[in-house]
């Protein structure tokens, strides 16, 4: 097959084959990732079922009382607490709902790529 001056039928075949290869590669990868997830999941369940000794110790100590009306702990990843407060206020304002009716689980900065 002349790949430089490729004929139209050959180009059509190459295009179809290429698309199939991309699909095949990512389907296989999906299966591998799913298997990985399945293998890790029981481990997590087991960890949850049997808490570590350190956790048992911690549990015996009186837990710090949460503030009244709190929705739990907010996790911040690469985010300044002041920025997080601002983001929560903006979200509440945009949605038109008071902050105490919303629950934020985590706030994470998505870094800007410089190439794409």
């Amino acid at each position: 097959m002349d790949l430089i001056n490729i004929s139209i039928p050959n180009a059509a075949f190459t295009a179809l084959l290429g698309y199939l290869v991309v699909f095949l590669g990512l389907v296989l990868l999906m299966i591998v990732v799913m298997l990985q997830g399945k293998l890790m999941a029981p481990k997590k369940k087991a960890e949850q079922a049997a808490p570590a000794p350190a956790e048992v110790k911690a549990a015996s100590a009186p837990a710090k009382e949460k503030a009244p009306g709190t929705a739990g702990e907010l996790k911040l990843y690469d985010t300044d607490p002041k920025d997080a407060a601002m983001i929560m206020a903006i979200v509440a304002d945009t949605l038109g709902k008071p902050l105490n009716e919303l629950r934020f689980l985590s706030i994470k900065e998505i870094k800007e790529d410089s190439d794409k």
């Binding site: 295009a15 990732v33 997830g37």
Partner: peptide, 30 residues
């Protein structure tokens, strides 16, 4: 959500359609 890998594959359609289009317009294979 590993199924999202399928969307990453589906979205490569333009690569191969444009490749075919470029051959039709007289470009070499590479």
């Amino acid at each position: 959500n590993p199924k999202s890998l399928l969307l990453g594959a589906a979205a490569q359609l333009g690569v191969f359609v444009a490749f075919f289009g470029a051959v039709l317009l007289g470009f070499t294979g590479p």
